[in-house]
Each structure stands twice: as structure tokens, then as C-alpha cells.
């Protein structure tokens, strides 16, 4: 069905986005650009077409045919379920000491992931840690959308001087390594869950803005947009009714990649000790706690559990994101 849609190839909106196309793999330290590595040069963002409702059903069918994407979906859904249900599932509280005499106890049937250096149940802490990750991932991306979409939309739709001013400021933010900027913001706001996701959001919107701008830039010359303009729709109406809905798929894909990046960023911050306030459990903090050389040597399970959790979540989101991109992308039918 998608094949029947008009396919438009838009040129490079501007030379800069090569870094975007390069994706999070290279800029992984930074909050990665929205769209991950496509199989060929040019990104999903380059190819857009007006879509209809049945697209989603179609996409779903394609998604479920992709084995990796299904694995990713299962991981992501379990991750969300675990995060939401953590207090119900966890046998112990996140800061509860099971037995202070049993510090650093290896995994067993009683404590499937062992007890940590304070005799706390690693399994329970891992479950609670998922909550922090989910909250940071989702809320920071919410903030990214909240700032990124309007900025990108204004720049893309109006172009000209507005575009110039907005994109120049974006360039400035972009020129600072993103993680560095997050660190500066965290330093400014102080540690803690809320401050962390705000900091991540305040840095991450830049990529989103570029993505949306590129979309709008390409779409605003489409015939149906011109038609809407001629029929007297205001700029806001056009943006909300026509441009935004048609930019939705790349935004969704970007979101799927943005969430794990935010999760990773939080973990990294907590790892260096400027993240979540302990004793609240966070995966990064668990990594930080367990990564003293002596612990790694004698009690590697303490480190293995949170590292595996972060890794698995990253994989899940990446698989799902890749799958989504392929499923939503017109080229997927090639």
C-alpha cells in the first residue's frame, strides 16, 4: 500500500546532518541523533509520504514479521511491566538490608541475584532500578518533544530568518559534546531524579528539533500543504493538521532511540555519582557501587546484574527501534 503513495526524495536539508545519519553509534556518548543507522545513506527522515490509518495495521504486520523487532518488543514490554510492578514483584524494599551479616552473598535460590555489599537483595534493587530508568527515559523524551517539536516546526515551516536564528542556537548547543552539557546541567540543578531527566531533556531536544525541521522543510512544499494554504488554513493549522501528523513516524522512531539513550545517560551519571539519590536504586549506581576492582574480582555477579539489565534494555529498544523504522519506512517494501 505504501508503494502506491507518491515518493518524494528530498535533498539534504543542510550539510550538517551527516552526524545524524551516522547515528548514536558514533555519537553514542552524546545524546544520539534521532534516527539510527539506516542500511543506506539517507535516512528515514528523507523519505516521507502522507499516510492513512491503515498504515499502522500494515506497519504492525511488518513489525511482527521481524524476529528481532519482536524480541525487542518483548524486552521493552517486560521492562515497562517490571518497572510499573516493581513494588509488587520485589521481595524486599530497595534500601532494605536483608541481613547485615550476609554482605556480598552469591546468587542462590533464596536470592536469585545475590546480596550486595550491604546485604541488600540485588534482584529487588534491579526491579526498582527499572522504575528509575523508565521514568527518566520517558519523561526526558517528553521534554525533548515538548521543546524539540515547536522549535523544529517553527524553523522548518517559516524558514528564513526564524530558521536561521533557531538553527544557529541549535548549532551552538550541538557543538558542545552533549554529555558534557548534561553534566553541566546536573551540576547546575543538583542530583536527583527530577533534575536528571530535566537535564537530559534540555540537552536532547536539539536533535529532535533538527529532525522535525528537516521534515517540515520537506513537507511544506507538498501539494496538499499548498492546497491547505490556498484554502485559507493558518500556519498553526497547517502545522498541526498536516505537517505534524505526516512527520509522526520518524518522530516515533527517534523516540524509540531516545529513550534508551536517556536511560544510558542516567546510568552513566549515576555511575560517576552525580545521578539518582541513594539509597534509591538505579542501575548506573549499582554499576558504580559494584565496579570497584576488588568487588569485580571476588563478586562479579554484583556488577553482572546491572550491566546485563542496562545492556538488555538497550538491545530491546534498539531492536524495536530498528524494526519500527523498517516497518514504518516506505523503503521497507523494497
Amino acid at each position: 500500500m505504501a508503494q502506491s503513495q507518491p515518493r518524494t526524495r528530498v535533498g539534504q536539508p543542510q550539510p550538517q546532518p551527516l552526524a545524524d545519519r551516522l547515528d548514536g553509534a558514533t555519537a553514542r556518548e552524546a545524546v544520539p541523533p534521532a534516527v539510527a543507522a539506516p542500511p543506506t545513506l539517507g535516512s528515514a527522515a528523507d523519505l516521507v509520504a502522507p499516510r492513512q490509518r491503515s498504515l499502522w495495521g500494515d506497519a504492525w504486520r511488518r513489525l511482527t514479521r521481524n524476529k528481532l523487532a519482536v524480541i525487542g518488543l518483548v524486552v521493552v514490554v517486560s521492562f515497562i511491566a517490571i518497572a510499573v510492578l516493581a513494588p509488587v514483584l520485589a521481595p524486599y524494599g530497595q534500601s532494605e538490608v536483608v541481613d547485615f551479616r550476609l554482605t556480598r552473598t552469591e546468587p542462590s535460590w533464596t536470592w536469585p541475584l545475590g546480596l550486595d555489599q550491604n546485604g541488600r537483595d540485588i534482584f529487588s534493587r534491579l526491579l526498582y532500578g527499572a522504575r528509575v530508568s523508565l521514568v527518566v527515559g520517558v519523561l526526558s523524551q517528553g521534554l525533548v518533544l515538548l521543546i524539540g517539536i515547536p522549535v523544529g516546526a517553527l524553523a522548518g515551516y517559516y524558514g528564513g530568518r526564524v530558521d536561521n536564528i533557531l538553527m544557529r542556537s541549535v548549532d551552538v548547543v550541538y557543538a558542545i559534546p552533549q554529555l558534557l552539557l548534561v553534566l553541566i546541567f546536573v551540576n547546575l540543578f543538583g542530583p536527583g531524579l527530577v533534575n536528571i531527566f530535566i537535564a537530559i531533556g534540555l540537552v536532547g531536544w536539539v536533535t529532535e528539533a533538527r529532525l522535525v525541521r528537516g521534515q517540515f522543510l520537506a513537507l511544506r512544499e507538498q501539494e496538499y500543504v499548498n492546497a491547505a494554504r490556498v484554502s485559507g488554513s493558518t500556519g498553526w493549522q497547517i502545522m498541526l493538521r498536516h505537517l505534524l501528523p505526516n512527520s509522526l513516524t520518524p518522530i516515533i522512531v527517534a523516540l524509540t532511540f531516545g529513550i534508551p539513550t536517556a536511560i544510558f545517560t542516567e546510568a552513566a551519571l549515576s555511575f560517576v555519582g552525580v545521578g539518582i539519590l541513594p539509597p534509591q536504586a538505579s542501575w548506573g549506581q549499582m554499576v558504580g557501587d559494584a565496579s570497584q576492582p576488588g568487588y569485580i574480582q571476588t563478586d562479579p555477579y554484583m556488577l553482572a546484574a546491572p550491566v546485563a539489565a542496562i545492556g538488555l534494555t538497550m538491545l530491546g529498544f534498539t531492536f524495536l527501534g530498528d524494526g519500527l523504522r523498517d516497518a514504518l519506512d516506505v523503503r521497507g517494501n523494497d
Partner: peptide, 8 residues
């Protein structure tokens, strides 16, 4: 020798 290495 801090707590992380002491038991070993």
C-alpha cells in the same frame, strides 16, 4: 586494603 578487597 578497603572493604572491597579485604575479604579476599
Amino acid at each position: 586494603v578497603a572493604a572491597d578487597n579485604l575479604p579476599r
